[in-house]
Simulated scan of single mutants.
Amino acid sequence: MRTGAGPGAAPVLEVTGLAAGYGKIAVLHEVSLRIMPGEVVALLGPNGAGKTTLLRAVSGLLPLSGGEVRFAGQDMRGAGPREAARAGLVHVIEGHRVFTQISVADNLLLAGYDLPRAERAQRIEEALEYFPEIAAKRQDRGGALSGGQQQMLVVAQGLVRRPRLMMLDEPSAGLSPVLVDRVLGVVAALREKGTSVLLVEQLIEKALAVSDRVYAMVQGRIALEAAADEPDLPLRLERSYFGGESPLHLHG
């Protein structure tokens, strides 16, 4: 396992006792997790476990009903998605669609709307380096891209923000196996550059292959924390999913 920060480094994201939900429906219960600088963390769990809700609460799309979120030492309670993105916390939302009537380049320009022009142009080129397929189509309308290429463009939009932490919600959804590997290859490349990633993914083996640590969520709670390369992890994940394991906290 590779860890992205030296001893004594502060977490880039620290979630403590977080509670959130929709109206009177409580979804998250006392959720705590941490992500270190340059670390990839997989967030796994069955459908309905609360993974997407957790990402929405962390990025300011959903208000907290308890607990706290600290990003780079900053209290994020009350911060909205725009403030989070400006701080370097970028959330790539599952099923997010690109603007189909404007070009690939203009989609990326919009992602960096508040940046100085020269810096915005540089960041767009940086983002496109990860995805040669869409770099070659920069003047094409977003709607002319395949579904897989649109997913790449969504990730590239997040990269324009040059995030300290990128949260990816099901980036493989609807992609062919080859394109899944391309998108997850970007996760590995981001880690090498010191960017932290929180990855929600149903393809467990592929997620673990690019991750340092893993959290499993079940029924709105963290049921397991472990190193991603722990030998008996698949068995422990299965037990946690189906109720055979009480909440554990094993630090990798």
Rank of each mutant, 00 (worst) to 15 (best):
M1V: 09
T3A: 11
V12K: 00
V15T: 09
G17T: 09
L18K: 09
A19I: 00
Y22H: 13
Y22C: 09
K24A: 15
I25F: 15
A26P: 08
H29V: 06
L33W: 04
I35F: 10
V40R: 01
V41E: 01
A42D: 05
N47T: 13
G48V: 11
G50C: 14
T52G: 02
T52Y: 03
T53V: 08
L54C: 06
L55W: 01
R56S: 14
A57Y: 08
A57W: 03
L62K: 07
L64N: 08
G66F: 07
V69G: 02
F71C: 02
M76G: 02
A79L: 12
G80W: 09
R82P: 04
E83Q: 14
A84D: 00
R86Q: 13
A87V: 10
G88S: 09
G88L: 07
V90T: 06
H91C: 06
G95L: 06
I102H: 02
S103V: 12
A105L: 13
D106T: 07
A111G: 04
D114H: 02
E119W: 00
I124T: 00
E125F: 02
E125D: 15
E129F: 06
E133L: 11
A135M: 08
A135W: 04
R141Q: 14
G142S: 10
A144L: 11
A144W: 14
S146F: 10
G147L: 11
G148V: 04
Q149V: 11
Q149K: 09
Q151L: 03
M152G: 05
M152A: 08
L153T: 04
L159G: 02
L159R: 02
R161Y: 01
R161D: 04
R162Y: 01
E170H: 08
A173I: 08
L175R: 00
S176H: 12
P177N: 13
L184M: 13
L190S: 07
E192K: 15
G194Y: 06
T195K: 06
S196Q: 02
S196V: 05
V197Y: 01
Q202G: 05
I204A: 10
K206M: 13
A207N: 01
V210N: 03
V210C: 01
Y215F: 15
Y215R: 07
M217K: 05
M217N: 04
A226G: 09
A227T: 05
E238A: 14
R239F: 09
S240N: 10
S240T: 15
F242L: 13
G243F: 10
P247Y: 11
L248N: 04
G252N: 08
G252M: 02
